[in-house]
Design a protein around this nucleic acid. Sequence first.
DNA 1: GTACAAGTTCAAGTTAGCTTGAAGTCAAGC
DNA 2: GCTTGACTTCAAGCTAACTTGAACTTGTAC
Lengths: 157, 157
Amino acid sequence: MAQLLTISETSRRSGVASSALRYYEERGLITAEREGSGHRRYPRPVLRRIAFVVFAQKVGLSLEEIAAELAKLPPQGVPGREDWSRLSATWSGRIDERIAELERLKAGLTECIGCGCLSLDRCKLANPDDRAARHGSGPRFWLGDPPPAQTASAAKE
Amino acid sequence: MAQLLTISETSRRSGVASSALRYYEERGLITAEREGSGHRRYPRPVLRRIAFVVFAQKVGLSLEEIAAELAKLPPQGVPGREDWSRLSATWSGRIDERIAELERLKAGLTECIGCGCLSLDRCKLANPDDRAARHGSGPRFWLGDPPPAQTASAAKE
DNA sequence: GTACAAGTTCAAGTTAGCTTGAAGTCAAGC
DNA sequence: GCTTGACTTCAAGCTAACTTGAACTTGTAC
């Protein structure tokens, strides 16, 4: 009946590794009380926060975005029904976009069998225009990621 | 009318950075002839290979998987209509799986507003069982990635 | 003959989201 | 009082898919 959970308890119950919990704390996603010893003690509601994080990740949000969402809730708060409903609208939209992109890909796949092309010049799949303008390094833009603000007529050919 | 393209030409036409092209070569995805100077010269069909890579990436394949697919084609070859048709079956399946996962997520989103729970214990969304068993490090298992071979009764509670 | 762009290789850096390891502290049992 | 396990912090490592930078060579133009 412990009101406060140790980190290993919290990890076990949430399915999230202790190291990840510390990382989430570092990133400001969750907070923990401390015992005199310095050991973390988690109030039970933290489990809901963690669940929120896990779910949001599945939807495709980055920890940064999740942190931003959580920041809109009361400090140690947990999403209530109305927060949840507000969020679900946004998230649904996001999921829809990703589904749409996948549908487009699939359609293109069939079409390309038809035309047999897969040519960079002529085929609208795999065309460079929507991907040439990556900014920064590393694998950042994947399916459904926001296009990096098209610089108007770049690579027009 | 140059039959052989320089790396910058190839980059410009494909929308893929020169550094990426060198990287693809290192990974065995493409090959290049060399001039006496050591400079790369690409035969035109390489553009189709590159298009193939780009498209496969969009479908969600890793470079390793793409390399495996390309290995099934004639050495410098480019996918013909029948390769294309074989691949498209696999890829369509893959896309469908991802779409299905997203649909499930979306459905869960609505359901969760209804129940207002988002509890790790009771809610089937965000439940730990299907994600607790990650192996290795780093952000590897995302939406639609193959579940890591469930070790039977782990985390049964 | 001398700039300057474009090419080369190789090593190291970038990103997210963690994990792993080292080195030390704390708590409980015998 | 000693072991053992859980905990702490901090730094470094991991992964994929590249990019960036350093140091050097080639090719083209004036």
